[in-house]
Structure formats: C-alpha cells, structure tokens
C-alpha cells in the first residue's frame, strides 16, 4: 500500500480509528475529518483510504452500516467497535511513548551525552 506519502507507515489505521471514534463517518467523511483534526497538515491519499477501511472492518476494529448522508444519499458509515476502541487506546499510548522518545532523542545536545 505504499502510497502514504507524508504519512508514517502504520499511522493511517490509527488516524482512521481516531476519526471514527469521534462520530460514525462515511469514507469521504473520514478523509475530511482527518484533514480537519490534523489542522490540514495530513492529507490522506484517497486511494489508500478504502483498502485501509476494508482491512479494519475485516479485523473487526470498525463496523459498517448503511445510512443516509447529510445530503440524503445512501452511504456506508463506519463506527468504532469495542476492539477498535481498545486498539486505538493502545496505539495512542504507544505512539505517545515513541514520539516522546524520538523527540527526546532528537533534542539531545552534545553536552547531555
């Protein structure tokens, strides 16, 4: 799936989980929401979104339901499952640890060594 330009490998799943954890969303909604909550910093390649959604659904981390979109069209809505919630919590904690570690590593000055 190597089209995640600008995204670290493995982070797309995390972002999707986060996005749908706030409110059930359809695929396009997920895209917009990630863009929104990252302050327009992260742009998901549209082609890799859906395979990721299908994979997460297959892993039972998210569940899908057909509903009506804002403009009254039939759309597939994804929401977080219990397993997905747990996974999001773990991934968030893991990411925070990693980010802190990397950030502290990168901020090391010669005097601290």
């Amino acid at each position: 799936m190597g089209k995640n330009a600008g995204l670290l490998p493995g982070t797309l799943d995390m972002l999707i989980l986060k996005a749908v954890s706030l409110k059930p969303l359809h695929g396009y909604g997920v895209l917009l929401r990630i863009r929104q909550i990252s302050g327009d910093a992260l742009d998901i390649p549209q082609g890799s979104l859906y395979p990721a959604l299908y994979r997460l659904e297959h892993q039972d981390l998210i569940a899908a339901d057909w509903g009506t979109s804002d403009n009254n069209r039939k759309a597939k809505f994804y929401k977080l499952t219990t397993a997905g919630r747990r996974r999001l919590r773990d991934e968030t904690a893991g990411w925070n640890r990693l980010a802190a570690a990397i950030s502290s590593a990168l901020n090391t000055t010669p005097e601290e060594v």
Partner: peptide
C-alpha cells in the same frame, strides 16, 4: 456495495 461506496466518495468529492 463496494462500487457504490467508491462512487459515493468520488461524487461527494
């Protein structure tokens, strides 16, 4: 269903 979903995405966009 998959094609419908993808079509929806492109049309919304």
């Amino acid at each position: 269903k998959m094609q419908e979903e993808l079509r929806f995405h492109i049309e919304e966009y």
